[in-house]
Simulated assay, not measured.
Amino acid sequence: ASAYHPKMMTKILLYAYTQKMYHGREIARQLEVHLPLMWLSGFQKPDFRSINRFRSERMKDLIDDLFREMITLFVADGYVKMEDYFVDGTKIEANANRYTFVWRKSAEKYQEKLQANVDRLIAQIEAIVEEEKAEDIDPSPAFTSE
């Protein structure tokens, strides 16, 4: 079989991460039933080994930065509220408030919390990837002759 296109694999990984799907097996399963993932993959169905190999070998150095930048961009544009994604008690003033300005230190602190939350999530994803790698490398028992 020919290799899957890296752009397609990157799209399905980033979308899966935003939907809180981190396990390779779960992503592979969702490629058969989840319409947005099916569309992003062009109706191709890479198996979990291909997904895990792609993110742990080919995209090892880039996927974390891409995910971090995507989340930061979505938050900045107002598409995602981090209160919905991370429950950390951060309070943001509403636009209807008469004090619509935001203190610089407050904005910097919010940005730091955002980066810390994303870093924690990336560490969680990396732990899942390593766990799946360990499960996938199941050596067969050695045969002994008696």
Rank of each mutant, 00 (worst) to 15 (best):
A1F: 10
S2F: 14
P6Q: 11
P6W: 05
M8Y: 03
M9F: 01
M9H: 01
T10P: 06
K11I: 00
L13F: 07
L13C: 09
L14N: 06
L14F: 02
Y15D: 04
A16G: 04
M21F: 09
M21D: 03
Y22G: 00
Y22T: 07
Y22R: 04
H23T: 08
H23K: 10
R25G: 04
E26I: 14
E26Y: 11
A28P: 00
R29V: 04
R29I: 04
Q30R: 13
E32D: 01
V33L: 14
V33H: 13
V33R: 12
H34G: 01
H34W: 01
L37A: 11
M38W: 01
W39P: 07
W39M: 15
L40T: 05
S41Y: 01
G42S: 05
F43I: 06
F43G: 08
Q44P: 07
Q44G: 06
P46D: 14
P46L: 06
F48T: 04
R49D: 15
R49K: 10
S50W: 05
I51F: 03
N52Q: 09
N52C: 12
R53E: 14
R53A: 13
F54R: 00
R55M: 04
R55H: 06
R58V: 07
R58C: 03
M59V: 07
K60I: 05
K60Q: 15
L62A: 12
I63K: 01
I63V: 15
D64L: 04
L66T: 02
L66N: 05
F67R: 11
R68Y: 06
E69R: 10
M70P: 01
T72H: 03
L73A: 13
F74Y: 14
A76N: 09
A76S: 13
D77G: 12
G78S: 09
Y79C: 08
V80N: 03
M82V: 08
D84K: 00
D84Q: 02
Y85V: 15
F86R: 02
V87L: 10
D88F: 09
G89T: 13
T90P: 01
K91I: 12
I92F: 07
E93I: 12
A94M: 13
A94Q: 13
A94F: 11
A94K: 15
A96F: 12
A96H: 13
N97E: 08
N97M: 08
R98P: 13
Y99H: 07
T100E: 07
T100K: 13
T100N: 11
F101E: 08
K105D: 15
K105L: 12
K105H: 07
S106N: 09
E108R: 12
K109F: 09
K109T: 03
Q111F: 03
E112Y: 11
K113I: 07
K113T: 08
L114Q: 06
Q115L: 08
Q115H: 10
A116W: 02
N117L: 03
V118P: 00
V118R: 00
L121Q: 11
I122G: 00
A123R: 03
A123W: 01
Q124E: 15
I125C: 01
I125V: 08
V129W: 09
V129K: 08
V129L: 09
E130R: 14
E130G: 08
E131M: 09
E132F: 03
K133N: 11
A134G: 03
E135N: 10
E135Q: 12
I137L: 08
I137H: 07
D138I: 02
D138L: 11
D138T: 05
S140A: 13
S140K: 05
S140G: 05
S140Y: 13
P141N: 11
A142L: 14
T144D: 14
T144A: 12
T144H: 14
